[in-house]
């Protein structure tokens, strides 16, 4: 049997909202350590890797490792029925072909239960090496979302140039061109508003902005986003999921023909 309970069910709903545009169905790997998921988009350009550690749940029980094929589209629809302060329990009974989502209101007066049929999915797994990136930009996730949205107006691609002083996002297309430059914060009251850059080597990489905008669907999970970059290496765009894990998106850069 598998059972995991989250007092703040909305966190789980935000995780699903963060994933479902990039991947519509995925296999969840459940073990004693927690829940993990790895999936690529259909064009094999981007990949998402999710980790939710067991100690982040109020209660967590996983008697044996399980691979659960789940339609994220359907799960998202079910989770929309959850109240914003509801507690969420995810359960898979032994020998069952369904996942049960139970939602309980804070005053314990309302209790809803939904079952979703599990799917048999072919899952492909990529070995992502630990990488020492040349540059890690940390910035407010709302700012990153806004920049990606704005850049998409100008063109299909965004070039991210990072130096020790700042990071520049630029796009050009038929209508024109533009760029936004952010300097490293020197003095901020709140850490979540800061832009910080760890840099070993300056980088300039170009990415499809459409994918960056899909990654930004996970921005409500975290005040800050980490963008890890090296030349000729996929971008890693990371949002923390509270203290319990993270969503990491990987995106292959565009290359010169």
């Amino acid at each position: 049997m598998f059972e995991a309970r989250l007092a703040q069910g909305s966190i789980f709903a935000k995780v699903i909202e963060g994933l479902r545009e990039l991947v519509t169905e995925a296999t969840w790997e459940c073990s004693g350590n927690g829940i993990t998921l790895q999936a690529m988009d259909s064009s094999h350009v981007a990949l998402v890797s999710l980790v939710l550690r067991s100690d982040g749940f109020e209660t967590y029980r996983c008697d044996r490792n399980m691979s659960l094929g789940i339609s994220l589209t359907s799960m998202s629809k079910v989770l929309k029925m959850m109240g914003k302060d509801d507690t969420l329990t995810i359960r898979v009974n032994d020998d069952s072909d369904a996942i049960v989502l139970s939602m309980e209101s804070q005053n314990q007066e309302e209790f809803a239960e939904y079952e979703l049929r599990l799917m048999d999915l072919d899952s492909e797994h990529l070995g992502i090496p630990d990488t020492d990136y040349s540059c890690v930009v940390k910035m407010p996730s709302t700012k990153f979302s806004r920049i990606c949205r704005d850049m998409a107006i100008l063109g299909d691609s965004v070039t991210i140039c990072s130096t020790k002083d700042g990071v520049k996002f630029g796009a050009k297309g038929d209508v024109g061109q533009g760029s936004i430059r952010l300097n490293q914060s020197t003095n901020v009251d709140k850490e979540e508003d800061a832009v910080s850059i760890e840099l070993r080597e300056a980088v300039a990489l170009t990415f499809a902005v459409r994918y960056l905008n899909m990654f930004c669907k996970a921005a409500p999970l975290s005040n800050q986003v980490n963008l890890s970059m090296s030349e000729d290496t996929p971008l890693m765009c990371e949002f923390k999921v509270g203290d319990m894990g993270h969503i990491r998106f990987y995106l292959a850069p565009k290359i010169e023909d």
Binding site: H44, L126, G127, P234, P253, E256, D257
Partner: peptide, 14 residues
């Protein structure tokens, strides 16, 4: 011209 590369080129499939 720029073209979109795929992740296969960077990460080997297990």
């Amino acid at each position: 011209r720029l073209r979109q590369s795929q992740l296969w080129m960077y990460y080997k499939r297990i």
